[in-house]
C-alpha cells in the first residue's frame, strides 16, 4: 500500500518535472533554433522558406507546436542535430554507453574504497591512519575534478609513461549497439584514469558520510545491547552497525550518482572521452541547439529515473518503513 501510493506520487512528480524540462527545452529551441535556416541554408528564396515553414507547422501557435514536440519526444524523436546531420537521439544513444561505463567504473571505485575507509575512520577515530584519511578527504573535496584529471595525466602518461590520457582505446561491440571498455585490456587501461578522476570527487564525500553515520550508529543503544549479549566485534560492526549505516546512504547515493553524470562533462572534456558530456560541450561550441535541448531532456530523464528507482529501493530495504502497518 505504502509503496503503491508512494509510487503514484513519484510518477506524478516525475511527469510534472519532465513536462517542465521539456517546456524549457522547447522554448529554447523555439527562441534559438531556426530549422529552416539549418535545413536549406542561405540559397533558398523567402517565398519558398515560408512554404516550408507552413509545411513543417512552424507558423502554428506556440502551444500547438509544444504539444507536437512532446508527442515526438515520447516516440524518441527530439529533432535532428545540425552538426552531425543525424537524429539527436541516435547521437546521444551512440555516446551514452561511454558515459555510463565511466560512471559505473567510478561508482565501483567509490563503493569499494569508501565503505572500508569510512568504517575504519569511525571505529578508530584517533588512529593516525584515520586522521590522515580525514585530512586527505578535505583536500579531495577541495580539488576540482578537472584538476585531479590534469594531475593524473601529468603524473602517469606524461611523467611515467603509464596508462592513457585520452580516448576509450580499443572497445568491444556488444549486442550490435553497445561499445564496452570492460572486456578488452586496452579498454580497461584507458578507463582507469578517467574513472579515478571522476571518483575523486565522490570518494571523500562518501568516506565522510559513512564515517559520520557510522559514528552515530555506534553510539546507539542497540549496539550497546549487542555488546552486552557478547557478540563478536565483527558481528556488531558488519551486521548490526553497517546495515543501519548503509540504509540512509543509499538515498544519498542516488542523488550522487546523478551528480556524477554532471561531472562526466568535466572528466570527459579533460580525457576527451567520447561520451555524452564531451558531446555536449562540442554541441555548445557548434551552437547545435537541438542536440543541447535533447541532452537537457535526456539527462533530466535519467536523473528522474535514477532518483525514483533509488527511492523505491530505499523503501524496500528499510524495514522500519512498513509495507503493511500492523502492530503485534
Amino acid at each position: 500500500m505504502v509503496v503503491l501510493s508512494f509510487f503514484l506520487k513519484r510518477s506524478y512528480q516525475f511527469i510534472i518535472v519532465m513536462l517542465v524540462i521539456s517546456f524549457i527545452g522547447f522554448s529554447i529551441q523555439d527562441a534559438l533554433g531556426d530549422p529552416i535556416h539549418q535545413l536549406v541554408g542561405e540559397s533558398v528564396g523567402l517565398a519558398e522558406r515560408e512554404k516550408l515553414r507552413e509545411k513543417l507547422g512552424l507558423n502554428d501557435p506556440f502551444l500547438t507546436q509544444y504539444v507536437r514536440f512532446v508527442k515526438n519526444a515520447l516516440t524518441g524523436d527530439l529533432g535532428t542535430s545540425y552538426f552531425f546531420k543525424k537524429p539527436v537521439m541516435a547521437v546521444i544513444l551512440d555516446r551514452f554507453p561511454a558515459t555510463l561505463e565511466l560512471t559505473l567504473a567510478a561508482s565501483f571505485i567509490v563503493i569499494f574504497l569508501s565503505i572500508p575507509l569510512g568504517i575504519y575512520c569511525a571505529v578508530y577515530p584517533k588512529h593516525v591512519l584515520a586522521r590522515t584519511i580525514m585530512t586527505f578527504s578535505i583536500i579531495g573535496i577541495s580539488m576540482p575534478v578537472f584538476l585531479t584529471g590534469i594531475l593524473l595525466i601529468y603524473i602517469f602518461p606524461v611523467q611515467l609513461g603509464l596508462l592513457y590520457s585520452f580516448g576509450r582505446g580499443e572497445t568491444l561491440m556488444l549486442f550490435g549497439f553497445w561499445e564496452t571498455n570492460f572486456l578488452t585490456q586496452d579498454g580497461l587501461l584507458h578507463i582507469i584514469l578517467p574513472a579515478i578522476s571522476l571518483a575523486s570527487i565522490m570518494l571523500p564525500l562518501f568516506i565522510r558520510l559513512i564515517r559520520g553515520r557510522m559514528v552515530e550508529v555506534l553510539s546507539e543503544e542497540y549496539i550497546h545491547f549487542a555488546k552486552a549479549r557478547g557478540l563478536t566485534k565483527n558481528r556488531i560492526l558488519y551486521v548490526h552497525a553497517f546495515r543501519n549505516t548503509l540504509i540512509p546512504i543509499v538515498s544519498v547515493a542516488g542523488v550522487q550518482f546523478a551528480t556524477m553524470i554532471a561531472y562526466t562533462i568535466l572528466t570527459e572534456t579533460v580525457f576527451q572521452w567520447p561520451g555524452m558530456g564531451f558531446m555536449f560541450i562540442e554541441a555548445v561550441t557548434h551552437s547545435d541547439i537541438p542536440l543541447i535541448v535533447a541532452y537537457l531532456v535526456f539527462v533530466g530523464f535519467v536523473f528522474m529515473v535514477t532518483n525514483t528507482v533509488v527511492d523505491i529501493l530505499y523503501l524496500m530495504i528499510d524495514p522500519t518503513v512498513q509495507l503493511v502497518k500492523q502492530k503485534f
Partner: peptide, 28 residues
C-alpha cells in the same frame, strides 16, 4: 575482551532500560 565476551550474554545477561532502543531496527 574475548574472555568478557564469553561471559556477556551467556552466564551474565542484561536487560536494558529502553526496549525501543535495545533492538536493532533492521534485524528481525
Amino acid at each position: 575482551e574475548t574472555e568478557l565476551n564469553r561471559l556477556r550474554g551467556d552466564k551474565i545477561t542484561m536487560i536494558f532500560q529502553n526496549p525501543l532502543g535495545s533492538l536493532n531496527p533492521v534485524l528481525t
